[in-house]
């Protein structure tokens, strides 16, 4: 224990980098997921095809391959060296964004057709319909899977260590080489990752409760703060990394 306490500042430094990668990645993935997810519900076949290409390409390539390509191939092609952290954020964001786009598309399509008809009867434009009616309703359905995806993204940021970013994993590896204390060095890293995941789970739960309340539903798992601490249910389709 003392081993870890002595080195806590180092670990926290690594954790701070991991948090940056996670937050940056989630922000990018969210924007991409919303954009390509909404595009995937367009009436125009061309727009839908654009969405499909993004989803299939970036879902199909491993985040690590993507990151190596950004970190090592892109500078040779463009002469522009990406910061390692930026390359990692791009890689995990593009990858998870592709999964997220499918979630968004599915959630929009799951909003009953009758809701769209009601917006037509009120003469809302496409943009008004999406913003005021469809997306707010789809949001509650997206959130649980978004929660799982955000944890997958957080885990995926560990690959940044392989291109020299000083995240939690890098600190642990450094500790191991310096001290030979393999078990302690890596346990510390795993616990930090676990804690970050718990924060993400808790945050998404809060969002879910708010979203369900807005739809006039009782949140699954019941009311009360304790319900937030219950372990998350894993959605079994589409939510894979």
């Amino acid at each position: 224990m003392e081993f870890l306490i002595d080195r806590l500042p180092l670990y926290l430094g690594g954790a701070w980098v991991t948090v940056q990668l996670t937050v940056g990645g989630i922000a990018l993935a969210f924007v991409l997921a919303m954009f390509f997810g909404v595009l995937g519900t367009a009436r125009s076949g061309l727009l839908r095809a654009v969405s499909t290409v993004y989803v299939e390409v970036f879902r199909g390539i491993a985040a690590l391959v993507l990151m190596f390509w950004m970190a090592y191939a892109l500078p040779l092609l463009t002469g522009f060296q990406l910061d390692g952290r930026f390359a990692a954020i791009l890689a995990v964001g593009l990858n998870v964004g592709a999964y997220g786009a499918e979630v968004v598309r599915g959630a929009i399509n799951a909003v009953p057709r009758a809701q769209t008809e009601a917006t037509i009867a009120l003469d809302m434009s496409w943009a008004q319909r999406m913003r005021l009616v469809i997306l707010p309703q789809a949001w509650a359905q997206m959130l649980p899977t978004f929660g799982n995806l955000s944890i997958e993204l957080m885990k995926a940021t560990a690959v940044a260590f392989l291109i020299g970013v000083a995240d939690i994993t890098a600190v642990a590896e450094q500790m191991r080489q310096a001290t030979g204390e393999t078990v302690l060095a890596f346990s510390g890293a795993l616990i930090l990752y676990f804690l970050i995941a718990q924060v993400l789970i808790f945050g998404v739960r809060l969002l879910e409760r708010r979203a369900n309340r807005r739809l006039g539903r009782t949140p699954p798992g019941g009311r009360g703060l304790l319900a937030l601490l219950r372990p998350p249910a894993l959605t079994t389709s589409g939510g894979a990394k």
């Binding site: 009758a114 008809e117 009601a118 005021l132 707010p136 309703q137 807005r214």
Partner: peptide, 10 residues
């Protein structure tokens, strides 16, 4: 509409 179709998010 027959099924009202109120917006549940509002």
């Amino acid at each position: 509409f027959q099924q009202f179709n109120l917006f549940p998010n509002m």
